[in-house]
Amino acid sequence: MKYLFLVLLFINSFYALADSGIKKSAKKTAEKVEEKISSKGKELVDKIGDERIKKLDEGIHKVSRILHKNHLALKAGANFSANRLETKANTDDHYTGYGFNTHFGYHWSQLEISGSSYIHYGKAEELQYIVNDNVISGEGTVQFVSISPMIRFHTNWEPKQNYRFYIGGGPIWSIETVKLQDYNNSVGAFQEETKITYESSGGILVFGVEEQTPFKEMHPVFIEVAFVYQSSFRVSTVDISKVAETNILTTQRSFDDLETYNIMFSLGITVF
């Protein structure tokens, strides 16, 4: 009897284990099938979603070619520049600059009139300037701040989908500030804590591409190359010993004393 009970218990346990094993494997199989179906389903949903988004994008950009823009906009970007300075004291120096640019203007569908400003900072090493008939040579930092009223014409050519090529230009006025950090001057008349500022004028030519979106609130991107030539018309020396005060020491006419050539690469967006 005892042994019969044990045998029955053994058989029962065996069947229970087998049954649970079958149930587990059935569950696993069901889970695998469900996972496969859901992943297939997910793939299908993603594919439909992606296709719909692509069609929507194409539709939006088709509409943007038809819609006139006619809005005020503020654009801003960062720029990297390669610059060349030539002075009457036979300096021919190259330096790279980093900075930013802003453009505020009115956009029609193909024409854009804006007030633009390009600013960069760099360091030049072989500078020679003539100030008050003194030759001052050394190395120092250069700050370039310019203002330019510009016209840009947006063509219908799209080198990349939805990015229209534009060309523009205008006059440019700038102030270049040189702070010499290590210098020699021929007469010893140049003071320490003095900066030299050149006021220049010239022209700017820009080429670029801008993303076409129906609304400026989508922050369209622009990528631009600008070529600038300027020559100076005034030079000043300014005492910078006191930050809160601007003390101009000397000012004189300076025609072509400084010629600058800049190539600026910009990348930015429409802010609002």
């Binding site: 700050q143 701040v145 500022t197 006021e199 000043s236 930050v243 809160a244 101009i248």
Partner: peptide, 10 residues
Amino acid sequence: VFDKDEPFWN
């Protein structure tokens, strides 16, 4: 004019 103020101001 172009002012010659220090960067602090501008």
